[in-house]
Every structure is written in C-alpha cells, then in structure tokens.
Design a protein around this nucleic acid. Structure first.
Lengths: 226, 226
DNA sequence: CCAAAAGTGTTGAAACTACACCCATGG
DNA sequence: CCATGGGTGTAGTTTCAACACTTTTGG
C-alpha cells in the first residue's frame, strides 16, 4: 500500500545531448515527427520504462532514434520546470554522450538525425536549448579536469588532433609546445611505434590513451588538469 | 492526448543530504516513522507534487521534516535503480544542502532529526548510503574549485575557522601559512575591522566572503582553487 | 620548391612546499 | 605564568606563459 499511489505523478523522460568533434564541436539533433513542435529540432530522448533505469532508457532511446550504440554516457541534470512540456507535466533526466568520429558518419542510419555545429544551432523544441547549454557548460568544465576528451577521438590519435579537440571544446587557441609538454608530463599517453599516413605534410606520431596508467596515477592522488 | 498517459509511471521523489560543520562534518538524518525501514535512519525527502519543481519539493520537504529553511541547495544526481524502493518503482532526485552553524542547533525543532558525524554513520534506509556517498564525493570535489565552503560558516569568520572547515571536509591537515596566503591572494575575502571576542587566546581578525568581488573576478576568467 | 603541420628549448615570473618562532588573550 | 590558537617570512623547487625556427612529407 504505497501511499504515493494515491497521487498523480509527473511523467519521466530522458534526453541526450550527443557531442562529437568533426572539425568543430557538434551536437546530434532529431527532427520531430509529432506534435508538439512538429518539424522542430530536438534532443533525442523519450519516456522511461518501469523496468529500466534512466541510464538504460537513455541508451535505448539513443539507439532507437539515432542508431548510436557503445557511446560514453553520463548523467547531466534533471529538468523539472512545471511548464517545460506543454502537453502535461514531464520531468526529464538529461544525459550527455560523447561519440568517436568513426560513428559520426556511419552511425546515424536511415533516421531523421543530423549533426549541427554548436556555433550554428537551430531553435529547439521544449527547453532543449537550456539543456544543451548546461551540457556545453559541463563538457567545457569537465574536459579540463577529467580525461574524457579521449571519448571524442579515435583509439589512436596525434597530439595535433588532441590539441584541436581541446581548442574546439574550449573555444580558444592553445600553445602547441605548452600543450604537448603538459600532456606528455602526465604520462597517461602511450607513445606508439606508428605514424600517421597519407597526409601531405610531415607525419605525426600516434598515441593512445593509457587508461590503466591513468587509473594507477589517480590512486596515487594524481589530478588530471589542463 | 499525450501518449505517455497510456503507460504506468515511476513515482518521483526527492532526497536531501544536509551537511553542516560543527567540529567535524555532519549530516542530518531522520528516524523513519513508517514502513518500510521503520525505525531506520534516512535522508529527509518525499514525493514531488504535480505543481512544483524538484528544487521546490526538496526545500519544502526539508522544511517540513527538519524545520530548516534558507539553506544553500543544489541538485546532486538522480537515482533510478529499479529496486531501490521495495514498495514500488521510485526515481529520486537527490540534492545536497549546506547549512550554517547557527541553524544546526536552533534549526531542527521538535522533529526526529539528528546530526551524525560523517565518520560515524548508522546504516541507512533504501539506497541512502549510496546517495550520501555521492554527496560526500561531490562536496569534497566541489569545495576545491567553487567557493561553497562559506555556506557552512557564519557570515563573519576567522581564517582559522575557514581552515578547519577545509580540513574537516577534505579529511587532511593543511599548512596554516600556505592556506592563508592562498586565500588572501585571491582577494575574495573582505577584511573586517573587527576581532573575535571572548576566546582565551589571541583574538583573530574576522573576515567576510566578498561575493561581489568573487563574481567580478570570475567574469575576468578567474578560477577559484584550493 | 611550395604548402602544411610536426616537432623542439629557453627564460622570467609566479606558485607551491616545507618549515619555526613570537604574540595576545583568558584563566 | 601557562595554555591556546593567531600571526608572520624565506628558500628551493616546480610550474606557467610566451615566444620562433627547423623538419618531413605530398603534390
């Protein structure tokens, strides 16, 4: 006899802000096929089932609506304004996802999804602009003190790519020598015996994020920081 | 005709982790008067109404259950494990609150609330131990890069109090000279023409957090960090 | 040979760590 | 006069910011 049964409940949904870096920072949006906001762009998302956590719901909706799977996903914030959905009361648990470049082109099959540069966004349905704003803020803050940037790069990458990634997220240029020194000093990058190929300039050495080394350092009290 | 009407919904609740510093870091808990977990200690919280945001619900529940009002409150995380409540599916938006010392003694009138040191906690109902753990982790991280520590001190405080606050949250000792230098260098403290009184040692100068100065600095790109 | 990005060192300023003694008050 | 916390300076080390030229490749 749970006493909450007697009361009406808000509906519960999830929304996902999916980031990728192509040349600059991009977000994946869906064109709505239903009222309200029919034809508007919106974040992928949907309602939470009775037998799934919100994490699982977010992954499920992401795959259903965009075909993306195996992405980095983290809870962002819960949005609960009473009027945020014109139909009825809906509380939404927002997530942000980070997607590697390989999935950007191949991943979003036959759907009505499209990547938009964060510097050139359309108007969004519901309060999705606000959600996206919070996600951007979080990404910009978090990339500086957690090594999540690697989730937006291929497994093997050059220091140039890594630097351009940081520049596109932080929105400002960084000094090449200082950037390299800072990253290499941390010793969380594995230097590979492999070079970039097929580029019309001096090829760059490839690196890989050394997750085990990072975890070891964290245990010793190390703090990632850029 | 919102399509979500057709589906059952999880219940939605809020839970609050209320922190204060007395001698060490403390958390406010409630002794449950209802099944399940009757007699256990639990976080203050309750169900979210149809016409209130989760923020408002958290403040309301906090006042109803503990008498506390005018506290610093921030959303923590949303917990949605399917089995987290044995009665039925309940998704809970967790908050953490920071309370100034004056409210610790006076605030919690006639209720079954009690402060516990975080180093000596009882077993908690539901998944409240996990929520508390996340809150502690967040507080420890956040106190280092946002000036929220002041929410746990009186308006006027000594540098000694401030240092002991940081020591009790971070759980380690800090060097007095370095700590003072670091804080004073930021110039976000207003030095008052007023001394501590009634102590049986050399009285300390009082300071106040200078919120306006802090905001000005943030606009210029300043990053608080301890 | 041109264009394009890779790669590399130094210097001065600022911040960080570790550390020990005297001061003012109440009891 | 004792106990208690308040208050202060320095030296060595590390980190940070700013800055320019040579190298290697493809076309």
């Amino acid at each position: 006899m749970p006493y909450s049964y007697e009361y009406p409940r808000p509906a519960l949904s999830v929304d996902c802000v999916v980031f990728a870096v192509d040349l600059d920072l991009k977000v994946l949006l869906i064109e709505r096929g239903l009222e309200p906001f029919l034809g508007s762009w919106a974040l992928p998302g949907g309602f939470v089932g009775m037998r799934e956590t919100t994490d699982v719901a977010a992954l499920r909706e992401l795959e259903e609506e965009t075909g993306l799977a195996n992405v980095f996903l983290e809870q962002l914030y819960t949005f609960s304004d009473v009027e945020r959905d014109p139909r009825e009361r809906v509380v939404s648990v927002a997530y942000y996802a980070l997607v590697k470049p390989a999935l950007v082109t191949g991943g979003t099959d036959a759907s009505q999804a499209r990547w938009f540069s964060v510097n050139d966004l359309p108007e969004l349905a519901f309060d999705h602009s606000a959600i996206l704003g919070v996600a951007l803020e979080r990404l910009r803050a978090k990339v500086r003190y957690q090594p999540i940037g690697f989730e937006l790069l291929p497994g093997k990458f050059t220091l140039g790519q890594l630097q351009r990634l940081y520049e596109s997220i932080l929105g400002r240029e960084l000094d090449k020598r200082n950037f390299r020194r800072a990253f290499l000093r941390m010793s969380i990058l594995e230097e590979l015996d492999e070079m970039e190929a097929g580029v019309s300039h001096r090829p760059s050495r490839l690196y890989r994020f050394h997750r085990a080394a990072y975890k070891r350092l964290v245990k010793q009290g190390f703090n990632f920081e850029i």
